[in-house]
């Protein structure tokens, strides 16, 4: 099998390498890719949408339909992970349980048959069997970092019209903060801030904001996702309506990406049990 794979890859790779001879030179401004469609975007993007970042314009306006399905692919992946892994059945944990005494940070092991603290106790909190030691340095550092990261992600989202950035990047940074919380503390802490149901609903709402904007355009009598028609609603002229709509759909994308990243992490890290995090 290995030899066959090697021969196959070498043969096909050789064919492609020989063919690379016919491709245009690297960085050639006169290549077809740079002369057919793309000059139109570069020349007209600002005029059409009053947004200097051409990538954001092409992403959320000229090819917004692709981008909507990109968010949909993420949503589908979130559903796929949930569907495949999630189970409410508790895994085997052995006879004993671990609790943390919150005021002191002391970890307590309760042997099988021992008396367990109340389920909603404010003083004792059940922790993972594979618990990580309580580390104030890591936890404090992350607690300080997370707000700044979240504000930064909002900046990336809001400033996407003028600088590299936009919905996906912002969503990933925002999702990473919640995952960072789960890694530095534990899964339960994260789940308390953002439950699985919230993550799922946010991801659906995020995609729905994008698709719903398109549907609104359709209901107002224009093509799907043609933001021009939203101008009266957004109290602006057509170019600015496009600019604002780009922001609206980017907010939807941010929500969807962030929520799905968190959702996938919840399911993958705990193998669907959502009791034991990493």
């Amino acid at each position: 099998m290995k030899k066959l794979a090697l021969i196959l890859c070498l043969f096909a790779g050789g064919l492609l390498l020989m063919n690379a001879h016919y491709l245009p030179m690297w960085g050639d401004p006169a290549s077809p890719a740079s002369t057919h469609v793309s000059p139109y975007f570069i020349e007209n993007a600002y005029e059409h949408t009053k947004t200097p970042n051409m990538v954001a314009v092409v992403l959320a306006d000229y090819r917004s339909y692709d981008t909507m399905f990109e968010a949909a692919v993420v949503l589908a992946a979130g559903f796929a992970c949930f569907f495949l892994l999630r189970s409410r059945a508790r895994g085997k944990k052995g006879g004993h349980h671990y609790y943390r005494h919150i005021p002191t940070g002391v970890t307590i092991k309760i042997e099988e048959g021992g008396k367990l603290p109340a389920e909603n106790s404010k003083v004792f909190r059940s922790i993972d069997a594979l618990w990580t030691p309580y580390d104030p340095i890591i936890q404090t550092t992350c607690r300080c970092l997370i707000p700044f990261l979240q504000i930064y992600s909002l900046y990336v989202l809001a400033h996407g019209h003028y600088s590299p950035g936009g919905g996906f990047q912002a969503g990933v940074v925002l999702g990473a903060t919640i995952i960072l919380l789960a890694i530095s503390h534990n899964l339960k802490t994260s789940l308390k801030r953002m439950s699985e149901r919230t993550a799922a609903l946010w991801s659906i709402i995020g995609v729905f904001i994008f698709a719903g904007t398109g549907l609104l355009c359709l209901l107002l009598g224009m093509d799907y996702l043609n933001y021009e028609v939203l101008a009266p609603l957004l109290l602006s002229d057509e170019a600015m309506a496009r600019s604002h709509s780009i922001l609206i759909v980017e907010v939807g994308v941010t929500m969807a990406v962030m929520a799905v990243m968190v959702w996938i992490y919840y399911n993958l890290s705990s193998a669907g049990q959502q009791d034991e995090g990493l």
Partner: peptide, 13 residues
């Protein structure tokens, strides 16, 4: 033929 977002091909989808 339907033009997504109102952009004519080859610029739009």
């Amino acid at each position: 033929v339907y033009h997504m977002a109102g952009w004519l091909p080859p610029f739009g989808i």
